[in-house]
Design a protein around this nucleic acid. Sequence first.
DNA 1: CAATAGTTGACTATTCTACTAGGTTAAGTA
DNA 2: TACTTAACCTAGTAGAATAGTCAACTATTG
Lengths: 156, 156
Amino acid sequence: MRLTTKGRYAVTAMLDLAFYSQDKPVTLTEIAARQTISLSYLEQLFARLRKAGIVQGVRGPGGGYQLNQDAKKISIGAIVEAVNEPLDSTKCGGEANCQHESMCLTHDLWMGLSEHIESYLTNITLADLLAKGDERRNAEQMGESVVKIRRTRKKS
Amino acid sequence: MRLTTKGRYAVTAMLDLAFYSQDKPVTLTEIAARQTISLSYLEQLFARLRKAGIVQGVRGPGGGYQLNQDAKKISIGAIVEAVNEPLDSTKCGGEANCQHESMCLTHDLWMGLSEHIESYLTNITLADLLAKGDERRNAEQMGESVVKIRRTRKKS
DNA sequence: CAATAGTTGACTATTCTACTAGGTTAAGTA
DNA sequence: TACTTAACCTAGTAGAATAGTCAACTATTG
């Protein structure tokens, strides 16, 4: 399990999507505006999320993206894993035989750590995070300043 | 907290160091041989670890590196943090004001996750991992095949 | 049909990773 | 004192990952 800014972008976008797509699909353009993530980068991330079956694209006017599953079923770990490429997990793939015995010792220990974090992230769902957000949103009203931005694209 | 292969290299090397430096300093050349990590890359990692006060260098023949603190005091989180550069933590530094209110919502949630993982890694020490290794090493004798390698360096 | 919006792919700049190459300094040993 | 050892330091570099642009599609709605 790798933890980088790419995963954070994906989780941020998914939280936004889960929050705003309760009645209708949300366009990436909206998410890009709200979360200040570039539209094209979002497109890349959501292409992976769609292939992983986490979100569903709806084409045409009024379209956008929706969750493909219940927010209670979508784990943070799944989101992070979807956008990161597999990571060849050290020279000795999995539990293979390393030349140096002490190597695999430390390697196993690191894998143990990694698996712990992975299982932690897998046991937190989008719904959990949304609930935490609701708590926080009691006092301060949540702003709805959806700035209409236009895609940076030249006309042909 | 970023979790990448760089951190794993550092933890692997530190485990090796903690294990073998109980009576005398351990040279990076030895660690490089045992863990199959390039010597010069280890030098870079240990330069950071030394600046962080985690290890101590001993110069001259018979020199090498030692732990600068008790293995019980050295956390995995500290090792990982020492070798990674600070990471500018999103556009809004810390708890600063973002333009879009919803941004900071999701941002806060991610920071919460990140802090959890950080505290987990901070609460595991080198000594803990060494103990786990001892358990494992009961049945299978640990090999001591220290291959003598020479530094890849041209003579002037 | 036209507008909307997703889908796809190619292409770019920057940063990080992992490593190579070499030089300098400090400390033991012959 | 000369030699060896090994830390310490600086610079460079191929390749991967990150973050993003640009442009051409395709499917759907009105």
